[in-house]
């Protein structure tokens, strides 16, 4: 968001997950959002077939973080040819867990009166960053010290035209919390924590050089090598 906009996590534009030609005329596009701790799958269903579609239902395969529909897919009226509807499906993280490849992959089955259709989509890992992910500063220091060196991964994020405070505020909107900030030799060092819905903590150090749009991020976590997704 720009100046004066409320902060919140980034929501990607919807993309086509199921093209009509692969689903007997049903087109599904969607995206994911986390709003105030509620996870939602925002879907657009379009009927590109010649006949009416009814009896919609949705199911997920088991996945890395136990994402599951928290209720039925609410398509309350039949979908006529050329009609489009938007549906928000609330999700829980209490479904069955199985590590997926890639980690953030979600396999979905949608049925209607015509057939059952399958597609895969990928969610941003920030979907499962919880609101109480700000680690106590002493705990952060102790944890950082205890994490083995080979659990650390380094990334460059290029072309970020924000100063460290603006970046920090923006990241907080996605539940990435800055615990401490220090400036050493012209570099801002931000120490950050993230907590996932399954209780895993991720610790990060972000380095920002004034005037350099490329950030360096060091991430520490002990399980699942999830740094690239984060």
């Amino acid at each position: 968001g720009g100046v004066g906009m409320p902060t919140g996590s980034y929501v990607a534009p919807k993309t086509v997950w199921l093209p009509a030609m692969k689903a007997k005329g049903l087109e599904i596009s969607g995206t994911f959002a986390r709003r105030g701790g509620i996870i939602q799958m925002d879907l657009t269903l379009t009927n590109k077939a010649m006949s009416v579609m009814t009896d919609f239902a949705i199911q997920f395969n088991r996945n890395s973080f136990g994402l599951a529909p928290a209720g039925p897919l609410q398509v309350l009226t039949p979908l006529s040819p050329n009609q489009t509807i938007d549906v928000s499906l609330p999700l829980s993280t209490s479904g069955p867990v199985m590590k997926m490849e890639p980690l953030n992959n979600l396999q979905v089955a949608v049925k209607n009166n015509i057939d059952v259709f399958y597609f895969s989509c990928q969610y941003p890992l920030s979907l499962i960053f919880v609101e109480d992910g700000k680690m106590e500063r002493q705990v952060f220091l102790a944890t950082w010290k205890d994490i083995p060196n080979d659990s650390e991964a380094q990334f460059q994020i290029k072309d970020i035209h924000l100063n460290s405070d603006a970046a920090s505020n923006k990241l907080q909107g996605s539940n990435i919390f800055t615990i401490a900030k220090r400036t050493v030799e012209g570099q801002d060092m931000l120490y950050q924590s993230v907590k996932l819905t399954n209780g895993i903590w991720v610790l990060a150090e972000m380095r920002i050089q004034t005037g350099n749009p490329n950030y360096t991020v060091n991430e520490n976590q002990e399980t699942w090598r999830m740094a690239p997704f984060i």
């Binding site: 500063r137 220091l141 401490a180 220090r182 050493v184 060092m189 150090e205 060091n218």
Partner: peptide, 20 residues
Amino acid sequence: ELEDGVDEAFSRLAESRTNP
């Protein structure tokens, strides 16, 4: 007093990461 210690510990951490 404890807070001072934590503040200092973060300064030392940032320092050590910049000049290992």
